[in-house]
Amino acid sequence: MTQATSTQIQLVSRPAGWPVPQNFRTVTVDLPPLAPGQVRVRNDYISVDPYMRGRMNDAESYTPPFALGETMTGGAVGHVIASQSDRFAEGDLVIHPLGWRDVAQGPAEAFSPVQEVPGAAESLYLGLLGMTGRTAYVGLTAVAGLRPGDTVFVSGAAGAVGSAAGQFARLLGASRVVGSAGSARKVELLTGRYWFDAALNYKDAPVREQLPALIPEGIDVYYDNVGGDHLEAAIDVMNRDGRAALCGSISGYNAEKPTPGPDNLHMLTTKGLMLKGFTVGFYQDRFAEFQQKVAEWFTAGRLVHDETVVEGLDHAVDGFLDMMRGGNIGKTVVKI
């Protein structure tokens, strides 16, 4: 077997506030010969996601921080190009967590065969048909307990998880779905493409002022990707026994000091509200249900999706930074 190399992106310093390109470096490493039970994969697409910003901090969380001077990780999909394992043959399409590089190598157990859906592009297994979609689905179902007839508010609704959550909510029987986004173009996409009944541009005026006019009947379920002012505004208009699935708080990911919490938490008591944070890994028992349901919706043409595709590993950091500033539509992936 010929000598193989892998180009990889590493974190070399921890961001203070917004990340900058100087926090990262690109290296090329020689890969050792495959050991028994290992596979080598050429990545076709890698994922960049908001949660990765949290892993750049040296802080305790649900997953360890990225180590300085080591290659970062994240979702990736690609083809096996060499195998010393009975589990995979050359050419197999796999998904795995060894992103931020063009070639990945490791034990076969680190890779999973893709359950291919007819008509789906490879990149969708990182997005709508992968972790992004699973996150939206379990947040609505297992966390918020969405019921037919519920009114739903989704923050960050033009992003990867938000645009999936809005569509899933409608397909699961929500009577009204409202979202927030950060530009007029994204607001138009929400109502014209992603099945939202109404949407607001949070840059036009405080969310707390805009939301009551959009949802005079109140909301039963809040899917939160943003936190901060969006969470505060949602609590204001939540109906009795309302439920919030707290998926992310991107509004504070780059803050240099802790931001104040909502000033209306007393409403959790007076309205009997439930706010529950989660990560998708908590609900692996719901993945098979998701796979079946969303594959059916996709093949029936009942789902739409958009991607922001960044060309080349050398632009992966740029794609990540642009996504963090809201420059993406739908899921951001890097095409290797």
Rank of each mutant, 00 (worst) to 15 (best):
G179L: 04
G242Y: 15
R134D: 06
Q84L: 00
G159F: 13
E188A: 14
Y222N: 11
Y253A: 09
V317G: 03
S83I: 01
R325G: 05
D318A: 14
V39G: 03
E307S: 03
P206D: 09
K276W: 04
L129T: 12
A300M: 09
G182I: 06
P113D: 01
Q84P: 00
R325Y: 03
T132L: 03
Y222W: 09
R325S: 07
K276F: 04
A16K: 10
T279G: 07
N239W: 06
G37Q: 07
F196N: 01
H305L: 06
Y137W: 15
K271W: 00
E311G: 02
V226W: 12
V226E: 07
D197H: 12
R55G: 03
L190F: 14
V152R: 04
H266C: 09
R208Q: 13
Q292W: 01
L321F: 02
W18P: 06
G326R: 03
G312K: 03
Q210R: 09
F111M: 03
A169Y: 14
F298Q: 04
Y283P: 10
P15I: 11
R14N: 06
D197F: 05
M324E: 06
D58C: 01
V77W: 01
F320K: 04
A164S: 15
N328Y: 01
L124A: 13
V114M: 04
A89I: 01
D318W: 11
A288H: 05
Q38I: 04
P107L: 05
A158W: 15
G74Y: 14
G326P: 14
G78V: 13
A198L: 01
A4M: 06
Q284D: 15
K276L: 08
W195A: 13
G106Y: 10
A120F: 02
S61N: 09
V143Y: 05
P32G: 02
V12E: 05
V152H: 02
G330L: 00
E296S: 12
R55W: 13
V143A: 09
R14M: 05
T151I: 15
T135G: 10
W18L: 11
T299I: 06
T191N: 00
Y62G: 11
Y222C: 07
T299G: 04
A233M: 07
V154C: 12
S112F: 13
D92M: 06
V20F: 00
M1W: 00
F298P: 10
L231S: 02
A199N: 01
H266E: 07
L11P: 12
G281S: 14
F290H: 08
S13N: 04
V187W: 02
F111C: 03
A108T: 11
L126N: 00
Q8E: 15
G327T: 04
E109P: 09
D92S: 11
D263I: 10
G17W: 11
L246G: 09
T135Y: 14
